[in-house]
Design a protein around this nucleic acid. Structure first.
Lengths: 148, 148
DNA sequence: GTGATTTATCGGTATATACCGGCTTTATGA
DNA sequence: TCATAAAGCCGGTATATACCGATAAATCAC
């Protein structure tokens, strides 16, 4: 007679875990007025800039229209800037100085949340978790040993 | 020289995985006009009804105001009904007949998505994933063997 | 080279999510 | 009992998320 504590739906479990982690990281980053979705977006831009919205969306596996809207918030805060290049359809996004500064100051706050989370998993647990999340990713081909 | 394919941020990885799984399950459930968040909410209500919003929110680890708003969509669709009981502050939620019917018809669609997802993990992978997500859950006490 | 197609982005719409403050109702305590 | 505290919910606000259709620009096909 187990009281059925948490849902057996893999998706629901992932969503629940993502919500919880989001709140932890958001709380850690709150002093800088940035949340983890924004932090993640800033980091991706930092690594990929200059990059257009479509490529950035693919990189983050985010819907392009979602990315566009999320980006407006960063733009509004003066953290990013988008410019039209030779291809006048595309907008190339990059960090502003302010954006870089926010990222630098956010890094230790992110680190604290990451360390606290990692401690709950243990080093092996984190590796295992990443492997499992990779296995879930349908954009990754399944390894030969599993496929079929 | 590894090209840094996916973020090392545990939170970002969880969010990405949750987004992807959500899209898979949503696509599977789409023929019934229900998404996985709604399906999950309906299932929780089915198991817990009659239940008030606060308890249901705690059960799902959802913010109570979020739950209240999500519930309005179900109400609007005629799938749930909320009634005030003796305690006039609390609203007790339960499925309607229509809601039960939607759940019954959605079950095989959910099952298909769940099976496809589970197949990517393997039986052991799913067990391992659930254990890791439990370990992340700060509302669960850490087992003696891990704590400190 | 011009018409068809594809690509990049945007806007409308709907939903999910959370924080905060306020209101109503219940419980508590002196 | 009556003042105070606590509980339960709602509304405002902000953001994240995705689908669809529209628009503009580049590319392709002939």
């Amino acid at each position: 007679m187990k009281p059925e504590t948490s849902p057996a739906c893999i998706c629901a479990r992932l969503r629940r875990a993502a919500r919880a982690a989001t709140q932890d990281y958001d709380a850690a980053l709150a002093p800088l007025g940035v949340n983890v979705a924004q932090y993640s977006l800033l980091r991706h831009i930092q690594r990929a800039a200059p990059v257009n919205l479509t490529d950035l969306a693919a990189l983050m596996q985010l819907d392009a229209s979602t990315l566009g809207r999320n980006l407006r918030v960063l733009d509004k805060n003066g953290w990013t800037r988008a410019a039209t290049g030779r291809d006048r359809r595309a907008r190339h996004v990059a960090l502003t100085d302010t954006g870089r500064d926010v990222l630098n100051r956010a890094a230790p706050l992110w680190r604290a949340a990451q360390d606290a989370t990692a401690a709950r998993l243990g080093a092996e647990g984190q590796t295992a978790l990443f492997a499992l999340l990779d296995a879930l990713d349908t954009s990754n081909p399944q390894p030969e040993s599993i496929r079929r």
